[in-house]
Write a protein that binds this DNA or RNA. Structure first.
Length: 471
RNA sequence: GGCCCCAUCGUCUAGAGGCCUAGGACGCGGGCCUUUCAAGCCUGCAACACGGGUUCGAAUCCCGUUGGGGUCACCA
């Protein structure tokens, strides 16, 4: 059996979408699992909507996710070029082959004529199909024309989908489809197929929305006398309202999740679990996935994208990072928030505390802002904890801290205990006002850690500030 | 509307005729721990769309209904 060859063929009309990323991922996973090849091809034949910026954005997102390609733009390969617009002669030659074999023919109908026909059909509530006007006309390359594939009118085509099982399409639902436009651009069904043939693709895994294209493509493979690849149609990703996932449902671009402080592994983990499962396991490393993934285990029902669960998965990944790695990766998010963090012991201490409390890098930077900027006092917290009643407590802690030349966890604990027991109070009565004075709010890591992170001088300053505020 | 596909907790899913009084996870509720917040631990709520078959036995197989999604271009 020959080496499996898979591909991802996005059209560069925008950023890499969550759904596209999952399609790419499943293809990549299978290629890696089987020792096959993963090909990236850019389907840019829609000149109106394709942009270089989108091409760059797609590369960027794929690389971030860790989906590397063996053949494709910028790495090359034996079946290039990998941009469809650079492959026009190839489509032309395959189309000629079809035309010469009588499997395709030139159609000289104008768009106006075609539109009129469609309108009429609609008015009569009839199903429109191209009437075959030019089916028997002789080939005249001097006249403007498109090329149409001659579809069989009777019978049906059945193929065995790797995830959905057998799917049958009656031929009378098909029409003589345009395969080459007037300007020589191939249409999707033809371009993709020619590329798949010429690039030796053995397994086509793509979105569910392509099932209806498959019979037409199979007919064209047969017209060309080429062997068929295996098809796998992946269920769609839906939004919470069960309609196709779109911007209305929140962030759908892969890079948006990078910018929000998600880990690529976590995004991959979540995406793969949306439609694929392996028993009760939820968290998978990339290495595990390239060992376990199988199209046979992909479910055949559409899945609702659940941001909460993705957040949870990200948290699981975040927590597994070492302090060093966590600090290194969190740093840019502190910087982006305008905070003067450095990749140092302090940051490592911060992230060690943040690990259990924040689910993304962006959350870490936002939640621990006070470690690098003046505390933003929450008025409600201040009203409750920075009062004349708590003043003596704050003063006692302040003085005790001032008397500690080099505070550490032990000495701080001793200090707080003494302040509390001297007044027959619980530790919480002391810790909470101090917490508000130091962080501005009522929620934070353990108070000793907060003092240690801020340092003795800064802690004293904030305590003094709170004291002054109470008056 | 035609055609195609699909149908287990709110969501992702396990389930290949008896292991199902339907399991796990997210989320949600309660409790424990505790200097707050998290985390952790314990615990609760919550599903086989409906109707017919087949079978000794059906979430699992078949048919229908309903519901959802996809697709019907010189877009991809």
């Amino acid at each position: 059996m020959s080496t499996p060859r898979l591909r991802f063929a996005p059209s560069p009309t925008g950023y890499l979408h969550i759904g596209g990323a999952r399609t790419a991922l499943f293809n990549w996973l299978w290629a890696r699992r089987t020792g096959g090849r993963f090909i990236l091809r850019i389907e840019d034949t829609d000149r109106e909507r394709s942009t270089q910026a989108a091409v760059d954005a797609i590369f960027d997102a794929m690389r971030w996710l860790g989906l590397d390609w063996d053949e494709g733009p910028d790495v090359g390969g034996p079946h290039g070029p990998y941009f469809q617009t650079q492959r026009l002669e190839i489509y032309r030659s395959y189309a000629d082959k079809l035309r010469q074999a009588g499997k395709a023919y030139a159609c000289y109908c104008s768009r106006e004529e075609l539109d009129a026909g469609r309108k009429q059909a609609e008015a009569q509530k009839r199903q429109y199909r191209y009437p075959g006007t030019c089916r028997e006309k002789p080939y005249d390359p001097s006249r403007p024309h498109v090329l149409r594939f001659r579809m069989p009118e009777t019978g049906a085509t059945t193929f065995d989908d790797l995830v959905k099982g057998p799917i049958t399409t009656p031929h009378d639902t098909l029409q003589d489809e345009v395969i080459l436009r007037g300007d020589g651009m191939p249409l999707y069904n033809f371009g993709a197929l020619v590329d798949d043939v010429q690039m030796g693709v053995t397994l086509v895994a793509r979105g569910d929305d392509h099932v209806n294209n498959t019979a037409r493509q199979i007919l064209m493979y047969q017209g060309l006398g080429e062997t068929l690849p295996v098809f796998a149609h992946l269920p769609m990703i839906l939004g919470a309202d069960k309609t196709r996932l779109s911007k209305r449902h929140g962030a759908t671009s892969v890079t948006a999740y990078r910018d929000m402080g998600y880990l690529p592994g976590a995004v991959v983990n979540y995406l793969v679990r949306l439609g694929w499962s392996h028993g009760d396991q939820e968290i998978f490393t990339l290495a595990e996935l390239t060992r376990l993934f199988d199209f046979a285990d992909v479910g055949d029902t559409a899945g609702v994208f659940n941001p909460d669960k993705m957040l949870w998965v990200n948290h699981e990944w975040l927590r597994a990072l070492s302090d060093e790695e966590l600090a290194r990766q969190a740093l840019p998010f502190f910087r982006a928030a305008g905070l003067p963090a450095e990749d140092d012991a302090k940051l490592r201490h911060v992230v060690r505390m943040a690990r259990e409390r924040a689910k993304t890098f962006a959350e870490i930077a936002q939640q621990f802002r006070y470690c690098y900027a003046p505390a933003e006092l929450d008025p409600k917290a201040a009203a409750k904890f920075l009062t004349p009643e708590t003043r003596p407590l704050l003063q006692a802690v302040r003085d005790g801290l001032a008397a500690l030349p080099a505070p550490d966890a032990q000495s701080l604990e001793k200090l707080f205990q003494e302040v509390a027991t001297a007044r027959a109070l619980g530790l919480g009565k002391v810790a909470q006002p101090v917490r508000v004075a130091l962080t501005g709010g009522t929620a934070s890591p353990g108070i000793y850690d907060v003092v240690l992170i801020l340092g003795r001088a800064e802690s004293l300053a904030r305590l003094d500030g709170a004291l002054a505020r109470i008056g």
